[in-house]
């Protein structure tokens, strides 16, 4: 499968990456190669091969509803690039990007 430059720009926008035209072209080739590889895997993955999103034979790994200590608030924001009044300070949110 071969991607178009528009496909690459769309994915880049979703990932909030600013790409130059050269990078778009470079990634178009690389991403297309990855997709071709996935196509190959898909041919082998017949219906009797279960999906392996969870390769462990484990289900229902559940936690008891018992509170555990949280981080001290100042520690919670200590690694934030910016904090204000105990809150994470983030740049202006633009709704069109929601």
């Amino acid at each position: 499968m071969s991607l178009t430059t528009d496909d690459v720009r769309h994915v880049a926008r979703l990932a909030r990456l600013a790409l130059t035209d050269g990078e778009v072209e470079e990634l178009r080739g690389e991403l297309s190669a990855i997709l071709a590889h996935v196509e190959q895997v898909r041919e082998v993955a017949t219906p009797d091969v279960p999906p392996t999103s969870h390769p462990y034979p484990l289900v229902n790994v559940l936690r008891a509803d018992e509170p555990r200590p949280s981080l001290p608030p100042d520690e919670a924001v200590s690694t934030a690039p910016e904090a204000e009044d105990g809150r994470f300070r983030v740049p202006r949110m633009s709704h069109s990007e929601g």
Partner: peptide
């Protein structure tokens, strides 16, 4: 109205300081 969050042991409550009921999982 569980006692803790969906995927971590942080308590659920009202009020309190901002980010006082957070942990590495929910952050």
């Amino acid at each position: 109205a569980t006692r803790t969050k969906m995927f971590c042991g942080c308590a659920i409550g009202f009020g309190g300081e901002p980010n006082s009921r957070t942990c590495p999982v929910c952050l």
